[in-house]
Design a protein around this nucleic acid. Structure first.
Lengths: 339, 339
DNA sequence: TTGAAAGCGGTACCAT
DNA sequence: ATGGTACCGCTTTCAA
């Protein structure tokens, strides 16, 4: 493939001039520019991005770290980040951290050693302190799904508390009084916030919060099944179960059906995240939309603006609203045949 | 960050020697090597992959093209490709083609202009001829999900015919005689092959193939619903519906339930692909596993071997077996209450 | 507005 | 086994 020298020669100019027309910033006489462009197209010239990176000390690479590449949670986000950044001429390098602290750190080091100009991190296990430290090295990054006060401007989160609140409130509005809650692991901030929202909704409705009605799961469907078993065994069983995420909600649905319970008549179930399969469960799952994809796009915009100094006509928002997605798994309780 | 000159200086050797220990191939005296390594770790040195790429004319980048990034079909494959290639020190650049011929070609050009050493292509709309041409330019690539005779060695496919055969055969073995088939769009090779497998199974069982029992869909769930409506309207309705993919199968399940049909008692449904949500439908979906992830890994190995001349201790296989995954949506037909 | 030339941080060939 | 050095293809001063 042709290089910049050949273009320069063919156009009868120096390579510096060719470089100028490639980059479009510096002034080049219109005539010269046309000659150069002609030469470029005649030769089918494409600038070598690697050489550009080396010379300009910007790789045009953005590294993404997600916990898992497979599974439905991140794929939409990856898609939207990729689209946004590719339109801006950036390359995306994707790695997985597998919710393991060591692997997450390795992945970050890998991305740094790739010379990424910036990172977008969806971390699970790394401490806030580590990220604060990272921000002091000259590594530019955005964080999704974590709120870290010292670097709040680069954190993009959904309003988890609000989401938890909405979920439980919608159950209350349907008339439920005995509402079980299956939480994610409470060492995770999002799980704590969702639970807090649940409590706020109860309180607002004058329902006393009873810790017995909370089961602490691990965000996997098996713990949804276990959580159902626990809540089902309580003296006064619940008519609705609100779950910290959709995986656990599907676990509840499975276990409840196995126990011969009709849903939603005898038991309402609410999830969180609104994953793709929420439509496919039976009954289809009422859930809280987690705008992870929008958050990714926003993080990408933030990077284009902050790191690449591009003008993206976007207002950077750090906190995203949580919204109900109503499907079939939530209905009025039927007390006379309560679980 | 330190560069190779600083390492050389600190170790008291030339940069050529440092380069040798980085690459590990050429011989370096043990003592020298240790000195260099010491210097590297003292300086926290990491070779600049961009400079390496420029100098060596290999970018260590592998480009991936999938139709969509979101959605469950490719995400497992992406995960396994990423793992395989990252372990080999390669970077993965991922793009989406959105099943559009123009966009797919653009994406390929983009990947080429990224200086990818090799591509892995999951294409939907591009013609075989284009790919054969591409193979004559000096672009190295593997193809997933397409069999192209001229370049068969770099194509990795599942045995679609066998999959279609297995699906229908399993229905026949359960006792079904009236078996509807909802095909993917027949301009797609995989759809044609799956349908052909269906026909072979019928023929083998002595069941006459009746084109009236075939509905041609588009691989989306809506066409599953439409296909159900059509098959359901036939004079002699079917007791089982075999679908060209899982999306259409979920469409069938939805529409059938809406029509008040009990599954699997009154109607068995079989999918193809075994996507993640096959477990979550109700009844859970019996399907044909599409080892897309294994195919991706194999394509990655093929690239490591062919393009990067690495010894991966793997036998390269181009054709992957299709396997049944038995769940609840297939059972014996109940004729006296047939649909 | 244009050109000359010095890097960017490596690789790889040729000597020694 | 080691060192010297010419690139790789581009960006970016600095001069003209």
């Amino acid at each position: 493939m042709a290089n910049i020298y050949q273009v320069a020669e063919r156009a009868g100019v120096s390579l510096a001039t060719v470089s100028r027309v490639i980059n479009g910033k510096a002034k080049v006489a219109e005539r010269t520019k046309l000659r150069v462009e002609q030469a470029m197209s005649e030769l089918g010239y494409r600038p070598n991005s690697i050489a550009q990176s080396l010379a300009s000390a910007t790789s045009n690479r953005v590294g993404i770290l997600v916990s898992v590449l497979d599974g439905p949670f991140f794929s939409n986000m990856l898609a939207s980040i990729e689209t946004t950044l590719r339109d801006a001429g950036k390359h995306v390098i994707i790695t997985a951290g597998h919710s393991d602290e060591v692997k997450e750190k390795e992945a970050i080091e890998f991305l740094i050693s790739c010379r990424c100009d910036a990172l977008i991190l969806c971390i699970d296990s790394i401490s806030d302190d580590y990220l604060v430290d990272l921000s002091k090295r000259n590594v530019q990054f955005a964080v999704i799904n974590h709120q870290i006060p010292q670097i709040a401007d680069r954190c993009f989160i959904v309003d988890n508390e609000q989401g938890g609140y909405l979920a439980t409130k919608s159950a209350i509005e349907k008339g439920h009084k005995q509402i079980g809650y299956i939480s994610g692991p409470t060492y995770k901030e999002d799980a704590r916030l969702r639970l807090r929202g649940h409590q706020r909704a109860l309180q607002e409705a004058g329902i006393k919060f009873d810790p017995d009605y909370v089961y602490c799961g691990d965000y996997h469907d098996s713990s949804g099944e276990a959580g159902f078993a626990y809540l089902h065994s309580l003296e006064k069983a619940c008519t609705a179960i609100v779950c910290g995420n959709d995986d656990m909600a599907t676990g509840v649905i499975f276990a409840a059906r196995r126990a011969g319970i009709d849903m939603p008549q005898q038991l309402s179930v609410i999830g969180f995240d609104d994953l793709i399969f929420a439509r496919y469960t039976y009954p289809s799952l009422t859930s809280i939309e987690n705008p992870i994809s929008d958050m990714g796009t926003m993080a990408a915009y933030w990077i284009l603006q902050t790191v690449y100094k591009q003008r993206v006509g976007k207002v950077i928002e750090n906190m995203f609203e949580a919204k109900m997605v109503v499907r079939d798994s939530l209905s009025e309780p039927i007390y006379h045949q309560s679980v």
